[in-house]
Design a binder for these strands. Structure first.
Lengths: 143, 143
DNA sequence: TTGCGTGCAAAGGTTTTGCATGGCA
DNA sequence: TGCCATGCAAAACCTTTGCACGCAA
């Protein structure tokens, strides 16, 4: 699975940035611009390639835009539990919630038992609004 | 929300084709080729524009490829229940399962009550393998 | 020294847009 | 007749690839 990889400055930079901002997801462009500000310049092609590696190793998760724009990437760490629990992602603020919860764990079992379907938690994300954003939006709608 | 739209041959054609094949999803290219075979030629640009309309009206659902390829579209009808139940999609054969099930309906409630998150079922799809494909793949792996 | 990593430029693929023409109401 | 719809070509985007050079081991 894991090839012998060199430890380069660029790879470290990309990985570190995502690791230090685990509550947000970034597009390749955003990442590229952010790193430019840090004066740690990494070519856009390299950003793509580093992300591919990080996604394959499981440390970073790739999300696809609902508007068909560019994909975004977010650090999740390589805790293997991520294959076993659901993820919630707020479409407003981008927050990612790892749903480690016994009740939710039974959902996979229920779907398997009653609907003959094997859910893949590495590909599945539940989209919606976190409470904070929901309330913010409801407030704005009243005006 | 819904604009006044003309009823044209092309729109009818695209909509009818998806409606007649509700168990499969199609990319724009596939749709374009299929319609060409039927001798009901619709320009690719028009296919894109018709699909946009159908997605907005809720009759058709848009899925994003996990490999970053092109999006695919599938008829779901505009039964409003689709906003209230989960959807399972097999990443192997593309089958879409509408999960109308009391147990699953409680999941939204649980997530809201215990995790303060409002799931949007129009944006959420649970990906994985249907039983048929799972067994087929397991068999192939043994060889 | 070996071979992977990097980054520029170019290619590839998907989707959107501009514009003149065609068709619905 | 007034507009929206259509479809071609071109543009706009996002992502991948080719290749020469640089750097880690």
């Amino acid at each position: 699975m894991s090839e012998t990889l060199y430890k380069t400055k660029q790879r470290e930079t990309v990985c570190a940035f995502l690791k230090n901002n685990p509550s947000h997801s970034f597009t390749v462009d955003e990442l590229y611009e952010q790193l430019k500000k840090t004066q740690a310049v990494v070519g856009k092609t390299t950003v793509y390639r580093c992300l591919d590696g990080l996604v394959n190793s499981g440390e970073v998760r790739k999300f696809f835009s609902h508007r068909g724009g560019s994909a975004s990437y977010q650090f999740v760490g390589n805790h293997s539990e991520c294959t076993e629990h659901f993820h919630l992602k707020c479409t407003e603020c981008g927050e990612l919630i790892h749903l480690s919860c016994d009740y939710m764990k039974e959902i996979d079992k229920h779907i398997l038992g009653h609907h003959d379907f094997y859910v893949d938690n590495t590909k599945t994300v539940l989209y919606g609004l976190c409470g904070k954003c929901k309330r913010k939006l409801d407030k704005g709608r009243k005006d």
